[in-house]
Every structure is written in structure tokens, then in C-alpha cells.
């Protein structure tokens, strides 16, 4: 059963040069208790998709489509309702823990904030819960650390705090945007393990460009390119049997697969090619690809791909 159903979601930003179509008519189902990975290169629209779910995009953004969560369209519920959902039922774990924590507010208070807001606990109870959360994310001597300020925490510890904030209200759905960004390898492994442990029975959308992290954590992975999803499969299928030429290029650009770059550049988000958006860079391109925009084709029950060549 799907917990969150994204139907035809677009997020467009009007600029002087034209409309930037950061997310363009995306359909995506996120099943209950699964971890769905959203991967793609910088500027492919992953983070915008993540932010649009709880309506955190700036007011200039034009967001269309539907995001059905528990029978309600999150894009049309009232401002008060979405505020209650944010941080309570659906939480965002933002990228850059260093800048996402307020430098002049104590760590414990920053965790307690959401707890007080969504669970109606009083100041003291919320503080205790915040210390429990710090303990749960394995921050040593949590009651002492709760009294400290962000600058007294290391990068890995700050990321643990972000996870604690994200999970403090026992949310149904977690949107984690690059939770391992800027961490060195050993810390990254710890954070991945921690997140796996803490979100075992929760639904999560994991946005990352780290394929290793995605492979380790996700039940399914969706690959984004130029504002749309080009391939969606289980990690095994995606890594072993990539169908879309872009997926193959993406995987071949990994260091241990030869660091082979994909020819050409990502299209401008303002003017997409008429047909397949990958066609200008694709070595298997044919007439159909240039003139028609491919739909998602189902290859196997869990494997979808947006490529005419994969159809047969």
C-alpha cells in the first residue's frame, strides 16, 4: 500500500530567462515502510522534489499536480494543516547540518522545539525527550551535550542531531536530503547504519547522489534526470541490469567502473529537448527518440524505465 502518492508533480520557477522546470510531471509512489532512494546528478531536481512534498519551496515556485498522503492532497490542504504535518507526521532531514542548526540555540532546545510543538509536551518533558533522542542517535553523554551549542559538535555529531530532530516526533514519513553529505567515509558508514536502524519500520525518501549509500539503504531506487524520473528499480536490478542509457552512463562514471564521463551536458532546465531528454547525449538515439517523449515502460514488476529502446 502506498503511503505517499505523487501524481504529475511539477515545480516550476519563473526567472528572467524563462521558466525553470526543476521538476516536471513526476509520478512516484512511496510504499508504506519502504525506503525509496532518489538519486541523480546535481541540478536534476531531487531536492526540489523533496521540498515540494511539505510545501517548503519559496512562494515564487509554481507547484502543480497532486501529492496524496493519507487520502489528502498535501498541495491543497490549509497552511495550518500542512504546518501540523510538517515536523510531526512528515519530517525533513535537511542537508548541511552545520548550517541547518541555529548557532545560538542550545542543541537540546532545538530538538525539544518540534517535540513541544507536535506532541504537546511541556518544556521539561520535551527536554527529557530531547535527551532520550540524543541518546538514541548515540551521542555520548546526552544530558551534557543537550546543553551545548552547535559549534561544540563535530560534523558527524551534528548530523546525528539532525537525525534526532527528524525522528523526534515519531514521523510516518521521513524525507532525508543528502544525510551523508560532507562526512568522511568512516563517519558516513556510522550514519548510514544509524539511519537504517532508526528508520527500519518507517517510510523514507532518501535523496542522495551517493550510490553506495542508496544501495545500502534503499528498497527501491528512482533515478532522476532533467526534472523527470528515467528509471526506477530495486538496487539489485538498477546496478546489475540498468536499462536506461543514462543509468548505464551514470554507473560507468563511478570510480571503480572506470570513471567514464557521459558525453555532453545536462540540458538547460528551461528548454528541454522535444523528445527524450537524454537524446542529445544518447549513443542509441533514433528518430523516435528525437520527436517523441517516452513514457515509463514496465520491464519487470518493479522495474520501470523511460526509454523507447528498452520497450521490446
Amino acid at each position: 500500500m502506498s503511503l505517499v502518492e505523487i501524481i504529475g508533480l511539477s515545480a516550476h520557477f519563473p526567472t528572467h530567462d524563462g521558466i525553470v522546470k526543476a521538476v516536471d510531471r513526476i509520478d512516484l509512489n512511496i510504499e508504506d515502510t519502504e525506503t525509496l532512494g532518489l538519486i541523480g546528478e546535481t541540478g536534476s531536481g531531487k531536492s526540489v522534489l523533496g521540498l515540494s512534498i511539505t510545501r517548503l519551496l519559496p512562494p515564487t515556485a509554481i507547484v502543480e499536480g497532486k501529492i496524496i498522503y493519507k487520502g489528502r492532497n498535501l498541495l491543497t490542504v490549509s497552511e495550518d494543516d500542512i504546518r501540523k504535518i510538517r515536523g510531526g507526521e512528515i519530517t525533513n532531514i535537511l542537508q548541511n547540518p552545520t548550517t541547518s542548526l541555529n548557532p545560538v540555540v542550545k542543541i537540546g532546545e532545538q530538538i525539544a522545539e518540534a517535540i513541544r510543538l507536535h506532541q504537546g509536551l511541556n518544556k521539561k518533558e520535551a527536554k527529557e525527550k530531547a535527551i532520550e533522542m540524543l541518546d538514541a542517535v548515540k551521542v555520548p553523554s546526552p544530558s551534557k551535550r543537550a546543553q551545548q551549542y552547535p559549534h561544540e559538535f563535530s560534523g558527524g555529531m551534528k548530523q546525528r542531531v539532525m537525525i534526532a530532530i527528524g525522528l523526534a516526533c515519531d514521523p510516518f514519513f521521513i524525507i532525508a536530503d543528502e544525510p551523508t553529505k560532507g562526512l568522511d567515509v568512516t563517519i558516513k558508514v556510522q550514519i548510514v547504519d544509524l539511519m537504517k536502524e532508526m528508520t527500519e519500520h518507517k517510510t523514507m525518501l532518501l535523496i542522495t547522489h551517493d550510490l553506495g549509500v542508496a544501495a545500502a539503504m534503499c528498497d527501491r531506487i528512482a533515478l532522476m534526470y532533467a526534472g523527470e524520473i528515467v528509471e526506477c528499480a530495486t538496487p539489485l536490478d538498477l546496478f546489475e541490469k540498468p536499462m536506461h542509457p543514462y543509468t548505464r552512463g551514470f554507473l560507468n562514471s563511478l570510480p571503480h567502473r572506470g570513471l567514464t564521463p557521459i558525453q555532453g551536458m545536462s540540458p538547460s532546465l528551461i528548454n528541454y529537448p522535444d523528445g527524450c531528454r537524454f537524446s542529445p547525449r544518447c549513443e542509441y538515439v533514433n528518430e523516435e527518440c528525437i520527436h517523441h517523449h517516452p513514457d515509463m515502460f514496465r520491464i519487470e514488476c518493479e522495474h520501470f524505465v523511460r526509454c523507447f529502446n528498452a520497450r521490446s
Binding site: 511539505t54 517548503l56 510538517r86 535537511l94 518540534a114 510543538l117
Partner: peptide, 10 residues
């Protein structure tokens, strides 16, 4: 970002 972060907490 900490303002956005606070906003994302509702």
C-alpha cells in the same frame, strides 16, 4: 538554512 530547517519542523 536553520530558518528553513525550523520551518520544515512546522
Amino acid at each position: 538554512e536553520f530558518v528553513e530547517s525550523a520551518r520544515s519542523l512546522g
